[in-house]
Amino acid sequence: MPLAFSDSTLKQIADLRARYPDAQAACMPVLHLAQDEFGHLGDDAIHLVAETLDLPDAHVYGVVTFYTMFRREPSGKNVLRVCTNVSCMITGGYDVLARVCKRLGIQPGQKTADGLFSLVEEECLAACADAPATVCGQKYYLRLDTPAKVDAMLDELARVPEQERVAPFWKAG
């Protein structure tokens, strides 16, 4: 069955479309909605977005592949982003990453077999004053300066699967 947007997403798309002078500008916001709805942006989702906004598939494909947050493959329920940039590195960011890798048994860019976690080695998260830092969806984990804090973070996330596509508490319209 071909992919289709839900009615509520279609309404959001119509609202979004009205906020920009042309359809192309709605491309990124609509891709975010598509990723929220379908979990990732496969060829069929790209085609659907292109058709909805009357853009060439190739244009939408070009946009999807430029930005790191747009996923071509399904992700784990928790997309955990671990910062290893300078402020985090010099306060133990690579230790955090190593512990997460060990506990989950995966490397950055991979997904756990149970589908609970995807791991991303992230660039600066703008939380440097609270380094080392990670973020998962809307939740930041800060000052992870002991292995126990890293373990507590993973335990919490495993208990309460917080998807990256957390339900927004505010919607257009």
């Binding site: 042309d22 070009g62 430029f66 930005y67 747009f70």
Partner: peptide
């Protein structure tokens, strides 16, 4: 308008291209 992961989009002209729905 939400970005989608690209440091270069902080540069103002890349940001404008991104806002127009293009690669940054």
């Amino acid at each position: 308008h939400r970005g989608a992961g690209a440091y270069i989009c902080g540069e103002e002209t890349a940001l404008l291209n991104s806002l127009e729905g293009q690669r940054g």
